[in-house]
Amino acid sequence: MSMQAKYLKKALLANQYKIERAEKSKNWIGRNKVKVILFGIFMSVVGPVYTHEPDGLHRREAVKAVDVSDFGHMGTAIAFAIFYTLAFLVAYFVWKYQDAKQIRQLKEHRIQLKEQLTSIQQV
């Protein structure tokens, strides 16, 4: 067995592990629905009243989202919830597309490696 065939077999095995790992890690938001929803509720309630210490350079005093908003606490919390929902919907579809693309590319690479290995073994 030539060195190139050994290299291709190792590359094929590594590719298979990458495919398995990508298959296991896809759909993160779907697997963690409860955590994502609870974090969204937490951010919607705490986000409008959250503030940090003023830094003295850019802000003289700390500003809350409720103070800037014309909606009050409930309206600002609803706005936070809508923004959070839209952000995670976009993230869900983008990550779903990226995961599918990565798996497809890995499978195409596996086919190329198998073709190269069979051509080497025939010679």
Score class of each variant (00 low, 15 high):
Ala87Val: 12
Gly30Ala: 06
Lys24Val: 00
Lys24Trp: 02
Lys96Ser: 14
Ala91Ser: 06
Leu38Ile: 08
Lys26Val: 00
Tyr84Cys: 03
Gln116Pro: 01
Val36Met: 12
Ala11Asp: 13
Asp70Ser: 14
Ala87Leu: 15
Ser44Asn: 04
Ala87Gly: 05
Asp67Ala: 00
Ser2Pro: 03
Ile78Cys: 15
Ala79Ser: 10
Gln4Glu: 07
Gln102Thr: 10
Arg110Cys: 05
Ala65His: 12
Val68His: 02
Ala22Ser: 11
Gln122Ser: 15
Lys33Pro: 05
Ala14Ile: 09
Glu20Leu: 12
Ala81Ser: 09
Lys107Asn: 10
Arg59Pro: 02
Val94Ser: 04
Lys107Met: 13
Lys96Tyr: 01
Met3Leu: 11
Ile29Asp: 02
Gln121Ala: 08
Ile78Tyr: 12
Arg31Glu: 03
Phe71Met: 14
Asn27Ala: 03
Trp28Arg: 10
Ile111Tyr: 04
Pro48Ile: 07
Asp99His: 13
Lys107Phe: 08
Arg110Ala: 12
Ser69Lys: 00
Glu108Thr: 14
Asn27Thr: 00
Asn27Glu: 00
Lys33Tyr: 07
Ala77Asp: 05
Ala62Trp: 03
Ile120Met: 08
Met3Ala: 09
Tyr97Pro: 07
Val68Gln: 00
Ser119Lys: 15
Lys6Asp: 14
Ala62Val: 11
Arg60Cys: 03
Gln122Leu: 12
Leu113Thr: 04
Met1Gln: 04
Leu57Cys: 02
Glu61Pro: 06
Met3Arg: 09
Asn15Trp: 00
Ala65Ser: 13
Asn32Ala: 14
Val34Leu: 13
Leu89Phe: 15
Pro48Leu: 02
Phe71Trp: 15
Gln105Asp: 04
Ile41Gly: 08
Leu117Pro: 13
Thr51Arg: 08
Ser119Glu: 13
Ala100Val: 01
Val68Asn: 04
Thr118Met: 14
Leu86Glu: 04
Ala100Pro: 05
Lys107Trp: 01
Ile78Glu: 06
Phe80Ala: 09
Glu108Met: 13
Ala22Leu: 11
Val123Ile: 06
Ala100Leu: 00
Ala87His: 08
Tyr7Ile: 07
Ser44Cys: 07
Val49Cys: 01
Asp67Ser: 01
Ile111Met: 08
Glu23Leu: 15
Ala77Met: 12
Phe42Gln: 01
Pro48Gly: 01
Ile37Pro: 02
Tyr17Cys: 12
Val45Phe: 12
Ala5Ser: 14
Phe42Ala: 00
Gln122Val: 13
Tyr7His: 01
Pro54Val: 05
Leu12Arg: 08
Lys18Leu: 15
Ser69Met: 05
Lys96Thr: 09
Gln102Cys: 10
